[in-house]
Write a protein that binds this DNA or RNA. Sequence first.
DNA 1: TTTGATTTTAGAATAAGTATAAATCCTGAT
DNA 2: ATCAGGATTTATACTTATTCTAAAATCAAA
Lengths: 131, 131
Amino acid sequence: MKGLNLTTQRKAVYDIVRNSNDHPTAAEVMNRLVEQGYNFAYGTVYNSLRYLTDKELIRELKLGESASRYDAKLDEHQHIICVSCGRVDEVMSSVPEDWKQAVAKETGYDVHHANVVFGGMCPQCLKKRTN
Amino acid sequence: MKGLNLTTQRKAVYDIVRNSNDHPTAAEVMNRLVEQGYNFAYGTVYNSLRYLTDKELIRELKLGESASRYDAKLDEHQHIICVSCGRVDEVMSSVPEDWKQAVAKETGYDVHHANVVFGGMCPQCLKKRTN
DNA sequence: TTTGATTTTAGAATAAGTATAAATCCTGAT
DNA sequence: ATCAGGATTTATACTTATTCTAAAATCAAA
Ligand SMILES: [Mn+2]
Ligand SMILES: [Mn+2]
Ligand SMILES: [Zn+2]
Ligand SMILES: [Zn+2]
């Protein structure tokens, strides 16, 4: 029905991304595959990530770091990165509709989407900080 | 006063960025330098862009494309990229303060900043589109 | 089963950017 | 003017993330 061909390697990659909540990079996915006893070619991991992204089973995130991250959470959401430890957390609060409209008005664009990356100090790092 | 050392090459790079309104990449800066008769080493252009960024004369933008872009507009603003032609325009309308607060509340982060990249169809591409 | 298509693999290639080390340029004392 | 030390530029090598390539392996009908 969906023309979906989940080979062993694609399934394994998909499972890693699905069961991770830290938005792993391709290299991190590779490491976790190795931990699980798999030994796929690097190219296969990239191909699988692209395949899964194309089929919209996962999403590729470009958060302004050097490497892309991958996310199996498909509902629209944004991200926040801790400036201290680098962890990436979810932001479910959605982009205000009236702001998007203001931007459309200002720019003359037909605004399709917004990618937002917040930066800040995560709760754990806030706790550790010396006052 | 600021300990600023604007060499010939740094000045030339700065002038390119200042007089561009399209957020050029390092490669584009290099091309424009060559058009102006300069012939600096690639490394010098990167070094200059980093120097100017460190001195806060320009800003480096990571918009989720493969290459960084540079911007001499220093007041806080966001960007919008045309999904059709790739042009990058300014978004001066600022991130709603109450939304940032909502995100702080939701995530427990101390929110420092937000980088927002809108995507959409620019006025020129809207005009060209076949209805 | 042969065949054609798809996928995986290893490795080469690419693109953006950084590191290195020698050469050049400045600057401020002699 | 001359020199020495520091900063800067340059050419080139390197790194990192990712894509490309072409051969080998796998799969799926006919
Ligand atoms: Mn997410
Ligand atoms: Mn700008
Ligand atoms: Zn943290
Ligand atoms: Zn356009």
